[in-house]
C-alpha cells in the first residue's frame, strides 16, 4: 500500500507542476511501476521519516507545525520532528515492519504520555534554556511541581492559547482555580476583558521575585502599570511602602478597589489603636438613623420657619462611602507639604 501511495505521489508531483487539473489526469494515467523514491520533507527539514506516516489524514495537526515559529526552517535553529520527539528508532522500525501497535516515539507530550515532565521539558529546554525568560526555570515552583512546558503550551497549532492576552488566563486557570473564581468578583483587574494577562505580572518560567512575579518584588511589579504610586513621596504611608499586598489583593475582591477588606475596618487593622477617631468602633450604630448617629447630637434645634424640631442625624463620615479615605485619600503617599496625615 505504501508503495502504491508513493507511486501515486510521484504522479501527482508531476501533475502539480502543471496544475491541479493535470494532477487529476495524472492519477489516472501514471504507470504503476514507477521507480520508488524516498519520501520528501513536507514542512520541516528531515521530517519525511515522520510525515511519511503521520500525514494530514493520520494527524493533520502534525503538519500545523509549519504555521508556527518552529516551522520557519530558514532559521538555522528551527527543529525537526526528532529534535523534540527523539530519534524514535524503534518506533520507526516497528511502523515500517507493519506492527499494528508500534512502540511509541521516544518523547511524547499528550495527556496520556508516560514520559515524565523532566524528559518532556528537556526537549524544549535544549533550545530554550538559553532564553533570558528561562534563566530561573530550574528550581522554580512550576519546575519543582512537575509542570511540563506542554502543560501550558501547544506546539502544533497556529495560535498557542497561552501566548494570547485574551485566552491565556483560561490556560492558567486550568490549575489556578481559586484565581479563576476571584476574577468573577465585583472588583478585578480587566483579566476577563482580555486586557490584563497573568503574564503581565507573573513569569511562569521562574523569576527573581516572589510568587513568580516579573519583577523583584510585589511593589515593583505593581508600579509597571501604576507608576504614579512609586514615589518616593515626601510623606510615605508605611504599609504601602512596605507591600501593596498589605491592603490589596490582585485577582479579584468584593471590596473595590481590589481591597482585602473594607474601609474603615481595613485601615483600623493598623490604626485602631490610635486616638481619637481611628480608634472608634464603626458599626451599624453609626449608619444614618443609628443610635450613635443620634446619640452625639444635642436636641433642640427648631426650624424657625416650620417650627419643627430639626432631626439632626450625624453619622460619622468615617463609616460612610470610602471610610477613612473620604479624607485621608493619599494612602499611597503624599507630596504635599501638609500631607503628613495623607489628607493632601
Amino acid at each position: 500500500m505504501k508503495f502504491l501511495r508513493q507511486v501515486l505521489a510521484m504522479c501527482f508531483l508531476v501533475g502539480a507542476w502543471g496544475g491541479y487539473s493535470a494532477v487529476l489526469a495524472a492519477t489516472e494515467t501514471q504507470p504503476a511501476a514507477e521507480k520508488k523514491e524516498a519520501p520528501k520533507d513536507v514542512v520541516l527539514k528531515g521530517d519525511a521519516k515522520c510525515t511519511a506516516c503521520h500525514d494530514e489524514a493520520d494527524a493533520p495537526r502534525v503538519l500545523h507545525i509549519g504555521k508556527t515559529r518552529h516551522g520557519v526552517v530558514a532559521d538555522g535553529r528551527a527543529p525537526t520532528c526528532t529534535s523534540c520527539h527523539g530519534d524514535s528508532v524503534k518506533h520507526i522500525k516497528d511502523a515500517d515492519g507493519g506492527i499494528k501497535n508500534p512502540t511509541k516515539p521516544d518523547v511524547t507530550f499528550g495527556a496520556k504520555s508516560q514520559v515524565g515532565s523532566p524528559a518532556k521539558n528537556n526537549a524544549c529546554l535544549t533550545c530554550h534554556d538559553k532564553d533570558a525568560n528561562r534563566d530561573h526555570w530550574a528550581g522554580s515552583l512550576h519546575q519543582r511541581r512537575d509542570v511540563a512546558c506542554t502543560s501550558c503550551h501547544e506546539v502544533h497549532v497556529q495560535d498557542d492559547r497561552v501566548l494570547s492576552k485574551v485566552t491565556q488566563a483560561e490556560v492558567c486557570f486550568a490549575c489556578h482555580k481559586t484565581e479563576r473564581a476571584q476574577t468573577h468578583r465585583m472588583s478585578t483587574h480587566p483579566i476577563g476583558a482580555g486586557k490584563v494577562s497573568c503574564s503581565d505580572c507573573h513569569n511562569p518560567h521562574g523569576s527573581t521575585g516572589p510568587k513568580l512575579l516579573v519583577k523583584d518584588s510585589v511593589n515593583e511589579t505593581c508600579f509597571t502599570c501604576h507608576a504614579e504610586k512609586r514615589g518616593p513621596f515626601l510623606f510615605e504611608h508605611a504599609s504601602a511602602n512596605d507591600d501593596c499586598m498589605n491592603c490589596h489583593t490582585p485577582h479579584g475582591s468584593t471590596n473595590a478597589p481590589l481591597l482585602k477588606a473594607r474601609s474603615p475596618w481595613l485601615c483600623q487593622q493598623c490604626h485602631s489603636g490610635t486616638t481619637p477617631h481611628p480608634g472608634n468602633v464603626y458599626s451599624a450604630t453609626g449608619l444614618p438613623g443609628g443610635a450613635v448617629a443620634n446619640a452625639t447630637q444635642t436636641v433642640g434645634t427648631i426650624n424657625p420657619i416650620t417650627g419643627v424640631q430639626v432631626t439632626k442625624n450625624n453619622p460619622p463620615a468615617q463609616l460612610a462611602f470610602r471610610g477613612c479615605t473620604n479624607c485621608h485619600s493619599q494612602v499611597h503617599g503624599s507630596n504635599h507639604p501638609a500631607g503628613v496625615y495623607l489628607l493632601r
Partner: peptide, 11 residues
C-alpha cells in the same frame, strides 16, 4: 487529498 498535497508540495 493526501496524495494531492504531497504531490503539490513535492512539486
Amino acid at each position: 487529498s493526501v496524495i494531492a498535497v504531497r504531490g503539490t508540495l513535492a512539486a
